[in-house]
Each structure stands twice: as C-alpha cells, then as structure tokens.
Design a protein around this nucleic acid. Structure first.
Lengths: 209, 209, 209, 209
DNA sequence: CATGAATGAGCATTCATTCAT
DNA sequence: CATGAATGAATGCTCATTCAT
C-alpha cells in the first residue's frame, strides 16, 4: 500500500505538472498569441526548465492541439449541459430556455474570455488543419442548436417549414457575434444583456411588425 | 511640361508598383497566412528585390495594415452600395432588399474568399491593435445594418420596440457565420443559398409558428 | 558464507550489467555512430533507466573508451593468436602462415564488421586522444607484423636488407585496405579472397617479372 | 564596360566570400572535427555574421559535402598528375616512377595533413552516404593504381599473372597507412622517407630472399 | 531609386548529466 | 543501487530589417 502511494504520488506529480504546463500554455497562447509565445515563456511562467516542457509534449504545435482540444470540450459541454433540447414543450418555455442558455453563455464568456480568444482569434491562423478544427467546432454548434429547433418543430411551437440546420447555424453566428462583442470590449460587463435579449426576440418573433 | 510628364510617369510607375506589392502581399497573407509569409515571398512573387519592399512600406506589419484597410474598405462598400437603407417602404420590399443584399454578399464571398480569410482568420492573430480593427469593422457592420432597421421602424414595417443596434449586430453575426461556412467548404457553391434564405426568413418572421 | 555468496551474486550481477551496457554501447556506436547515439538509446536497448548508465560509466566518452579498448584487445589478439612469429622456418611455411593469417583476418572481418567500423570509421572523429589511440593500435599492428618479418630475416628466408618495421606498417596498411573494402561492400562475401591472395603474393614475390 | 566591371566585382566578391567560407569550414572541420564545429565558429573565424553562411550554403551538411568534394578533387589530381601510367617501359623506369610518385605524395601529405585528416578521419563518421564517398575515393585510387600495373603487365616488366586490381587496392592501402603514420606524428618530417622506400621495394621485389 | 548581401536576434529542439526518490 | 524527471547549455536555422553599391 505504501508502494502504491509512492507510485501514485509520482504519477500525480507528473499529471499535475502536465496540467500546469497546459494551463500556462493556455494563458500564454490566449493572451499573447501562439506565434508570439515561445516555449521558454511557458516554462518561465511555471519556473521550470524549458527542456522539461518536451518531456510532456511533443512540440509547440502538439501542446496547442491539446489546449485547443481541452477548450473545445469545454465549449461543447456548454451547449450540451442541463438544458436538453427536448426539455420544453411550448413557445413560452422555449423562449425561457433560450434566455437561460443565453445567460449561461454570457456567464461563461465573461468568465472565460481567453477561451474564446484562443479559439476564435488565435487558432484560425496556425494552419489549415487547426482552422478546420475550429470550423468543425462551429459546425457542431450548429447541429446541436438544430436539435433544439427540431424539437420545436416536432412539438409544433416552431413553424413547420423551418430549415432547422441552416437556422441553427445562423443562431450560432449570433452567439459568435456576441462573443466577438465581448472580446471587443471586455471591461463592459453589460454588453451582452441587451444583445442576448434582442437575439432571443429575433429568433422567436422576427422583426416584422 | 515635358518634365512634368516624366515626373508623373515616374509617379504612376511608383504607385503602380506600390499597388502591385499590396496585391501580392494580400495574396500571400490570405493564402499562406501572415506568419507563414516572408517578405521575400512577396517580393519574389513580383520579381522584385525584397529591399524594394521597404521603399514602399515601413515593415511587414505596416503592409498588413494597408492590406487590411483596403479589404475593410471593400467590405464596407459592400454594405453601403446601391441598396440604400431608406430605399424601401414596405415589409415586402424590405424582404426583397434583404434577399438582394444576401445575394450580393454570397457573390462577393464566393468571388473573394481570400478577403474573408484574411480578415476573419488571419488578422485577429497579429496583435491587439489589429484585432481591434477587425472588431471595429464588425461593429461598423452592425451600425450600418442598424440603419436599415431604423428605416424599417420609422416606416412602420418593423416592430417599434426593436433594439435596432443589437439586432444589427446579430444580423452581422449571421452573415459572418455564413462566411465561416463558405470558408469551411470552399468547393461547395451552394452552401449559402439555403442558409441565406433561412436567415432572411428568420429575421423577418422569426421561428415561431 | 551465505552473505559472501549474496555479495558475490550481487557483484556478478553488477559485472553482468556492466558488460551488457558495454555490448549495447558497442552495437549502437558501431551501427549508428557515436555522435548519432544517445545515452538513452543504449539504455533503451537494454531496457534499463538511462540514469543507471552513469552508475557504471563516467560519461559518454568514458564508455566509448571502454568499448574501443575492448575492441582493440580483440583486434590485437587476432594478430597474436596461434600463429607465433617464430613458428615457421622456410619461405613456403611463411607463405602458408600468411595465408592462414589472411584467412583468419577475413573470417574475423566478415564476422565482426562493426568492430572495424567502430575503430576505423567512428573512433577517429571523437577527439585527438581517441584518434591517437587508433593510431597506436595501427602502430602496434605494424610492430607485431615486423616481429614476423624479423623472424624471416633471422631464418634467412626474407631478404636481409628488409626494413622490417616499415614493411610491417605497409602490410598493416594492406590489411586495413582490405577491411575498408569489406566495409564498403559488406554484402559481397568474396571481396577478400582474391585480395588476400594478391597481398600474400605481393609481399612474398613482389610484382616484378 | 564599367557596368560589366561593377557586375563582375560584385560577382567576384561573392565568389571570394564563398571560397573564404569554404576554406574556413575546411580548417574548422579538419582541425576540430565536423561535429565539434558550429556554424558560428566558421562565421566567427571570418568575422561574418552566421546568417551570411546560409546565403552561400544550404546547411552544415551541404558545406561539408563541398569541402569534401574539393578535397577529393585535389586528392584525385594527385594520382592523375604528370606521371601517366603508360609513361614507363622498363622495371627500372617504373621503380623510378614509383619513387617520384611516393615523393609527390609525401610532399603533398606534409603540406596538407588537414586534407588527409578530413577525409580519412572525419568524413567517415558523418553518415552512410559520406562514408561511401570516402570508400569510392579509395576505390578510385585502386583503379587508377591498377592502370599503372596494367601497363607494366602489358610491357612485360610486371609478372603476367598479376591481379592488377587487387594489387592496386593493396598499394593504395600502403599509401593510406603512410598517411596515417604522418597524421599520427605530424611533427616528424622524416617518417615517410624510409616507409616509402620500403613500400617501393616491397611492391617491386617482394620480401623473399 | 532598386537591389540583394549582410546581419543577428530569436526560437524550437536535443541530449548529456544530475539528483531526489 | 536503479530510476527517470528535471535541467539548460548548445546549436542549426529563419527572416525582418538595414545599407552600401
């Protein structure tokens, strides 16, 4: 048992360090940008030798991939959380669901602007593969959103001729625009409030008088 | 007078070269990416010495700024073109206007994917200032769109409680999402058709049944 | 007594491991080259931690020295084996002795090309001291060969004005050239046959008609 | 004409610098060894920036190849010089030719020990291709030498059953051994005298009494 | 004014060696 | 005594920028 503890302690330390490096890389990449960040910057932030970095990650591109993946997982979780697509049955309930989701997104975005910055601003300029990854993430968002809309059509509270997939992508676009607005002025804690409400009303009612 | 002609010819040549460099830089930056492009690549594309580059632009960052500015102007022109915000008076006319604008955007996007790539994917990873410039461009788009909406509210075919600015930003978000979709799959010439129609119907009617 | 046995077992294990490391280093150095071999390569080949290496050898250079020394001993043994310099009394016997020695060298070279590669190709590029060691090995070969020649002069079957030392070095040169030829084309099992015969006839008869 | 001069001056400077870099690399590689030499060492020796190096050579391996090639050319020239294989008709003349060639080799070796060091000691430890190049150089030496022997057989002053190619390789081996001896003790200006004489007598007369 | 040779800061990566466990 | 995590010196190479011609 003591041996097991020793092993697990070493293993824990190893995983902890790996996680620390990931976090440090995340901070550097999202704050300074990938190209402006040297491996030495990441190491220095942790007070470790920069050779140590290479004991945990293949190379600079490798850790970016891990950082992006971690972030993508968190962003995907955001959509797939407590508000299941099929949890609502009426237009009013759906509108409330939209407001709750919007609220959750706002909170997340305010709490994690660096994640947005990394995915939306940095990751698209590394190479084609990383850019495709971002596109796929956005595309997945569209499909997940479409699932909500499909529920609405099935339940009858959304119009039956709705192109749910295209509209799902459109909604994701509005969410992204909100993120851009937040990133554009991170100090203002209230940019998203009226924006979210406008989006919710737009998608439910449209603009027509 | 003959000397004036000679000078103006020289001046014309100079401006022509400057313009050629700008175009070459645009192509390289948008195709390979800013960080992956060397000044020598731009010069080689034109068959000029790469020292010549510095006769026309301060440095690499400087030409990116000019390239982005030129592109921003073209993108802004796109919104401000023949379809003036106040040109329509009824909801049907407005819907038609939206479809025309959507069509124009689609054509432009298909014809100039590199412009979109440069602004949306590359420019956001240079530095804070350049990122702000992109944000401002998007913001301007929101304001321009809001002008259309204001007309609709004034004419009475859009609901009077519309938050035109927020909604304008939301519409820009949907346009951006369309651009992302196009960039994500540039070979498919028909991605945007149903998407545009969905967006137009969404903003006019909403999704409610 | 049981403790003595335990100690000696430990000691035996220790010596065995040391020997294993030496062998692994020999293989790596001779196959990939000294500079292309990392300590980790040697350790990995044995499945030991690379820290263990430093329990047995000072540093990378140190183990090369041991590897070279071991190899040098084997090469020296080759010359000093059953065919003693004074074992022959006539030119015919000497010629036969030469053929036997040549045969033995050929077999050895075919069986241990890596030894030759290590000493002739690798060891000369480490540093001045190691290079001198190789030179000394070759020089020793010349002296050992000269001993054979001295016997021939003493017995009267070689010409009395023979510069035995210089000629000994020359013979070693021809042996080395054979080794180079073998290393140059290791797949051909018959390069050395006619070469050895030519050397034997050259040294006994010369080329004159 | 003045323009031609200007161009040729620039070109001359360029070629001169390239040649200087080659020479500096030759010195560093042959004195310290390839692996112990950094590009910065070569640059520093010339007082140039180390970036300049890369304007003239692809990479470190590339310049080694050029250095080796240049050296190989000079070594080959050594054999193919004024003493044509067919220039002699009798054994005495041939013996004299051998002595002249030996003398020339001695002089060259004394004057250019670094060339020998580079080819024989350093080049064999870079990679398989470079090692093969050295082998080919030695092999070429054997063939060139065989041409001399073929002449002797044809003229009748060498025995008709001589395996000229194998014997040519053997003679090259003796030459190489002489080079090794010189490199082994570069200060002694007389090592090669008696050695060369012994080799000449060995190949002409053999050792038999 | 064009040129391109020269420059050197900057960076990713490797690996011999040390040492705490 | 074995281990392998940590280290950082060392180095090959790139490229934006300068400047003499």
């Amino acid at each position: 048992m003591s041996e097991e503890k020793i092993l697990s302690r070493a293993e824990r330390n190893r995983l902890q360090l790996r996680s620390d490096i990931l976090q440090a890389a995340f901070i550097e990449f999202s704050e300074r940008g990938y190209h402006q960040t040297a491996i030495a910057d990441i190491a220095q932030r942790l007070g470790i030798g920069h050779g140590t970095f290479y004991r945990h990650f293949e190379n600079k591109r490798d850790i970016l991939e891990h950082v992006i993946n971690d972030t993508a997982v968190q962003l995907t979780n955001l959509l797939a959380a407590e508000n299941a697509p099929t949890a609502v049955a009426t237009l009013d309930e759906y509108t409330e669901q939209c407001r709750r989701i919007a609220e959750r997104f706002s909170e997340f975005a305010h709490a994690n602007p660096n994640m947005l910055r990394l995915v939306l601003l940095e990751a698209t300029s590394i190479d084609a593969e990383m850019t495709q990854r971002v596109f796929m993430l956005i595309d997945t968002g569209g499909h997940l959103t479409a699932a909500y809309l499909n529920n609405g059509v099935a339940r009858g509270y959304l119009r039956s001729d709705l192109d749910t997939l295209s509209t799902g992508h459109a909604i994701v676009g509005m969410i992204m625009a909100g993120m851009f607005r937040l990133l554009s002025d991170p100090t203002n804690p209230n940019v998203l409030k009226p924006y979210a409400e406008s989006v919710v009303r737009l998608i439910v009612e449209g603009m027509a008088n």
